[in-house]
């Protein structure tokens, strides 16, 4: 009696297939499916009602969704650019340090060692309108006699969140760009100096092209980070007041777990994923172009 024997390659791949299916594929398909249902965590049977694209229509026509989307893109654009510039400046300065550079590099990484939740709490305290450091400092210096509502006013709250984001992530740029600066060969820089370049021209024409790949790697990593920003905002303002600092994932998180409308939350999640994918693809294209410039393209 010969039973049907599966081919060897299939047997060998089976453990990987099972794990991938359990960890990635099934949750993905399940969440995708649930986005086509009015699934509520409190009413499990709602998972079996198919409503087609209703959730997507709802999200795409929702003013709340689009404001959160726009605000996320805005935060991403401003935060990434400022972090990149500050990180670049920091890296250039540290690169010039000849004594105690190792210690400085370690200190530079401190912000990355804190949980974003704690950073959130810390900045919530710093920007608190009554007991916060910022208001106290401003009042002591006599710059204002009012309690500025840092976390209550919509624009100021956005600014406060931006500051917290930048504090925690500028070092990511600084570290990666510093690694890039270490890898810049000395010869072309000397050649440029002899060729008549001022220090700024040397930086602009020689150093910068060499560190561009590192900048794009940092941008790609950080764009994913900011596109899924949740923890700091959740702690500092919880998306409030009155949705004025609502980002995509605080909105989705609240819809899914507080309002228990998981089907709708999943639909918004799938739309938001495209944002992250777009930025990743964009920066990796840029990265490859920059590497190609240097003749390093694979």
């Amino acid at each position: 009696m010969s039973r049907l024997k599966p081919p060897a390659w299939f047997v060998l791949l089976l453990p990987a297939i099972i794990i991938l299916a359990a960890v990635v594929l099934i949750p993905l398909l399940l969440s995708l499916y649930s986005s086509f249902t009015p699934y509520r965590l409190t009413r499990p049977d709602s998972l079996y009602r198919w409503i087609g694209f209703a959730n997507y229509e709802k999200a795409l026509t929702s003013i709340h969704f689009w404001t959160a989307f726009g605000r996320t893109v805005l935060l991403l654009t401003i935060a990434l650019n400022l972090e990149m510039l500050m990180g670049l400046g920091l890296a250039l300065l540290v690169n010039k340090v000849t004594w105690g550079q190792r210690t400085l590099r370690t200190i530079m990484m401190f912000p990355m060692m804190f949980s974003p939740i704690l950073v959130g709490f810390q900045f919530k305290f710093i920007f608190n309108d009554n007991v916060g450091l910022v208001n106290n400092a401003l009042q002591s210096l006599g710059l204002t006699d009012q309690a500025i509502p840092w976390l209550v006013d919509g624009k100021l709250a956005f600014f406060s969140i931006l500051v917290a984001e930048m504090w925690s992530a500028t070092s990511v740029f600084a570290i990666l760009i510093l690694a890039g600066l270490f890898a810049v060969p000395r010869d072309p820089i000397e050649a440029a100096t002899v060729d008549g370049c001022t220090p700024w021209q040397t930086f602009r024409h020689i150093t910068l092209p060499f560190i561009m790949p590192f900048i794009y790697i940092a941008l790609a990593i950080r764009s994913l980070d900011v596109a899924r920003a949740y923890d700091i905002v959740q702690i500092m303002t919880n998306g409030g007041p009155a949705r004025r600092t609502e980002l995509l994932w605080t909105l989705i998180g609240r819809t899914g777990y507080v309002d228990a409308r998981m089907g709708y939350a999943n639909a918004m999640g799938y739309i938001s994923i495209f944002l992250a994918i777009f930025f990743t693809v964009y920066f990796f294209r840029k990265l490859n172009a920059a590497r190609g410039e240097l003749g390093m393209a694979s």
Binding site: D187, P188, E190, A191, T193, V194, C197, I206
Partner: peptide, 16 residues
């Protein structure tokens, strides 16, 4: 160097 009006050829070329 930029004010010395010199050119230099390096051992490992140092091309951009």
């Amino acid at each position: 160097p930029r004010h010395r009006n010199i050119s230099m050829v390096f051992q490992n070329y140092a091309l951009y």
